[in-house]
Amino acid sequence: MISQENNNLQRYVENIQPLFIGLNDNAIYACHHVAEKSTETQQVMVICPPLGHEYERCHRALKQFASMLTKVGIDVLRFDYRGTGDSAGEYHQHSFASWQQDIHQAIDFIKQRTGVNQVSIMGLRLGATLAQKVAMQRDDVDGICMWEPCLDGKELLDEWTQDQKAHEKALGYTATKEHLSEVLGFSISPELMKDVQELSTSPQQLIAVPCDKKCVAVEDLQYWQQLLGDEVTYISSQGIEIWRQEAMQARVPISLLSSIQSWLIGSER
């Protein structure tokens, strides 16, 4: 009797398969969201999350996004970069190079697991910047969505410094003067600092990715449209800065996520 009840429940519960890719110090934690219904051509998306405190704040939205995609027949892989979430290692042991390797590994893994030849990728903030770098090196990425990519490292460092200083002020002390050693609970290694300082990409460089479908979700739509014309699909992310809100306060931006979903399945409004 109980098992019959469980079977009934099972039919309605989302199929999320947690797993580790790789072993020991290189183990990457991931969740494979299995598509609910099959479509003629199987589609797969890999989600590249933001880093540090921003990931914690965006986790819920990205998981909900994965769930939305499974409902329209798309398999999704979410993963944690090494040194983040449940993956091996400490945050300060890693930087852009190892996180790009992780994206490569995640793509290779899901292709092998599902048997598809092409994947789409979606990145948020630094995740978008890293996803673009990876897409430039591969020929099996057929679609890329970059949600508020970080283009200017110095600007990003200023933002981190302000956030950390505001936090320290709220706690009643000042530790960060010039050199940033941590940002809201995540230690910054000299290597990561160097990577961020050297980050400088233009929107034109960003969309030079060799894939057919490109999409950017950005706040300043007009600026991007003027620069890039009709080469990409634009989605407005105005007023949606979920990475700036505490996890408890962050709302899931359903409308924006629905727009990305529509772009992905080719039914943009």
């Binding site: 914690e56 986790h59 819920r60 944690d80 983040t84 979430g85 449940d86 945050y91 609970g185 408890m248």
Partner: peptide
């Protein structure tokens, strides 16, 4: 709260591994 099982600032992940070093198994 609504923070996933890695914990705030990833502290549950680090704590589980520290407990493992102390000879204790942990589940987050």
């Amino acid at each position: 709260g609504l923070i996933h099982h890695a914990g705030p600032g990833r502290v549950y992940t680090r704590l589980a591994r520290a407990l493992s070093d102390h000879g204790l198994s942990a589940v987050r």
